[in-house]
Design a protein around this nucleic acid. Sequence first.
DNA 1: CTGAAAGCGCTTACAG
DNA 2: CTGAAAGCGCTTACAG
Lengths: 339, 339
Amino acid sequence: MITIYDIAKKTGYSAPTVSKALNGTGGLSPETRRKILKSAEEMGYSPNMTARALSTKKSYLIGIIFEDLYMQRGFEHPLFGGVLTKFRSEVEASGYDLIFISTSFGDTKVNSYVEHCKLRNVDAVVIINPLDDYSKIIELAKSDIPCVSTNDLVPGIPAVITDNESAGFDAGEFLIKNGHTKIAYIAGSSNEYSQAADERLTGLRRALTKHNLQLEDKNIERCSLWTREAGESAMKNILSRNTDITAVFAANDNMAIGAMNYCKQFGLKVPEDISFVGFDDENFSEFYQPALTTFSQNRKLIAELSEEILMNQLIGVPVKDCIRVPADFIVRDSVRKIC
Amino acid sequence: MITIYDIAKKTGYSAPTVSKALNGTGGLSPETRRKILKSAEEMGYSPNMTARALSTKKSYLIGIIFEDLYMQRGFEHPLFGGVLTKFRSEVEASGYDLIFISTSFGDTKVNSYVEHCKLRNVDAVVIINPLDDYSKIIELAKSDIPCVSTNDLVPGIPAVITDNESAGFDAGEFLIKNGHTKIAYIAGSSNEYSQAADERLTGLRRALTKHNLQLEDKNIERCSLWTREAGESAMKNILSRNTDITAVFAANDNMAIGAMNYCKQFGLKVPEDISFVGFDDENFSEFYQPALTTFSQNRKLIAELSEEILMNQLIGVPVKDCIRVPADFIVRDSVRKIC
DNA sequence: CTGAAAGCGCTTACAG
DNA sequence: CTGAAAGCGCTTACAG
């Protein structure tokens, strides 16, 4: 490993001068700067970020909070995986590296995101998806570490989130346009900070209201999970109360598929007897029979905008509290037009 | 931020003594150790890994090489995403953090994995999938940085890889058992370091030979990519030469689906007229019509074993050059039994 | 059992 | 324009 002292010795300058040449700071003469840079190049010098970080307090490290307890899909999660892929390429182009932040770190019993961030000296963090225990995110929001969130709306943390309400509205409009009036809604849980399920419902309601229709309570089913099994049991519950619905908006494709499977078992044909709209555009959704009509969240745009927000915070430019990103509606074969 | 000097001042001991207490090193009296630990706890001390790394040369950082130029699926890649998910949890339990390593780093024109590793002082690196330019991996293999690879076989780097040949053999046996004798093979490219496609072919050949059958050259199609489109054109080429094959082993599900789509277009029914076995068990494969018979690579085991190999290298325990991990065969509906 | 000294590789005032 | 000094937070010989 070659250091600035090696370069200093070789060129006859002092270490601080070498440092300034390398960083383009300080009023060095063009000549010395050139000589130092040339030697550095020849000697194959590369800086030690650890030492630099220690003295400047800037690590060029961005922490990633990425968990998926809940869908258990890890990096293959239909939204989070895609966001991370694009976020990584953006951040690397800006000269930062990505490090995973957890609530634990080996035997040093770190027990919070903030602590792990301090430990590693990260400059900022992107919250792609946190654990269920939001107290640790609140703690992070209150710290002085710049953050951005791509899924949750937490006070004090700028967010870039899919415009769920508009998507819900679009789903409603589409179903109504296709002649459906008795519509059901199924979704997983939401909480104070993660409200996608509620927002999609609000949008759906707005569309129905606009057309003087109603979403009856008995046609709404909320589960704690967002799994296929949850979709199945939600559908079962709805059909046990009410069999005259003609369409279902499911808040994710997983649940849609569980629900459609149940309908088929129940003796209903999809979409002849009952239509479906999902959410997420999982890569299996085009292959399900019938191919599922759904929404694709704009993962790339979410990643780009959140990276921009982080970088702006790092240079002190004010940022918006929350940017909503439209989802793309993908029409396939799971909705039937009824006259 | 509170440092060991703060603890030193508060307890009346020196910084080195505090350091020793915190690390459990040096022959401190139980009493001082207890007092220092207690104060550290009370003051909410957490160590600065950057400073520690600078003085010890140990960062507790594992570099991840993860690219997917080739399938363009990023973290959603059917093999790599799952390996990374599990690898991360293993490594974190061992007290290490994960950082992404690229061939570039901002304006400091880092241009190699080794350089990026030195920059960040990583203790070891896991190669989940590199870029096509293997010279940079060779350079890494020659460096003194401990590595493990989960997909490629590079001299000097221990590897944990799916037992592709056995899987190919199993695919062959299964097809033969179901009465197929005219079998085709389609796959993407391979190279010196990444030989999955060749290995699967070797296994298939071995099964055929065992039963005195032959895999004719005109029934083998190799593409540069592993995409759906590649599968489609491979199938087209084979059918243009020879229409009496009854089964195809495709080296990944993507290609299998492209090929099946082409067959359908061509007027062949799957599996009535032509049977298929794929590889990877993508999450859409169960939904394709017919549901695809395929292999699932054991991502969790690959991750566990490779983490173990890395940790062993870190403590100087000798490790194996290459461990092969069996893939699970998943029988669905895409192979027909012909009498 | 404890601490003074030096060092890890770098940068930032400050002086000249 | 250049360099001596001090410091970032920690650890490792070494001395007592």
